[in-house]
């Protein structure tokens, strides 16, 4: 099974994988070989990629779409990076910034909730990467 992670800037991952755990909007989603065709909405969080040689890669995925078809899992996302690139301090700051956003209208509340969820997921992944070091 192939795993591909594409951002508008470049293709970050193009590897043969054994098993993939994807962060969907409502929780983690496991993908094994010969999975049925799926299009899913990605949330913000960590993607675990078990390669053929049993090595595990940890990626931070910032929303987007997951498409699984013909034994190819494609992540279309705006931003992705290895979780080791994340910084706990920056993530904490992102939470503070999100907390400071206005809540005047329904649209503003929506934007704030989204930013807060993103920042929290970033902090969680960053802390995990920090613990693994």
């Amino acid at each position: 099974m192939k795993c591909i992670v594409v951002t508008p800037e470049k293709t970050l991952v193009d590897e043969d994988a054994k098993f993939i755990v994807a962060p969907l909007y409502d929780g983690e989603y496991g993908i094994d070989a010969d999975h049925a065709p799926v299009v899913g909405r990605l949330g913000v969080g960590e993607m675990r990629l078990t390669l053929v040689n049993d090595a595990v890669q940890y990626w931070f995925i910032d929303g987007g779409i997951l498409e699984v078809v013909d034994n190819v899992a494609t992540f279309l996302t705006n931003r992705a990076c290895p979780i080791s690139d994340l910084n706990v301090g920056e993530a904490r700051k992102a939470i503070e910034d999100a907390n400071r956003l206005p809540m005047g209208s329904l649209a503003e509340v929506e934007i704030r909730t989204e930013a807060l969820a993103r920042a929290n997921a970033q902090l969680k992944a960053a802390e995990k990467a920090h613990a693994m070091k």
Partner: peptide, 26 residues
């Protein structure tokens, strides 16, 4: 292809359309 949509085609669309705009602008 017969896809399974998680959670629903409408929700996927909500994610795809803003992304399409960002990508097109880029």
């Amino acid at each position: 292809l017969d896809y399974e949509f998680l959670p629903s085609p409408q929700s996927i669309l909500e994610e795809v359309i803003p992304n399409a705009f960002r990508t097109l602008l880029f």
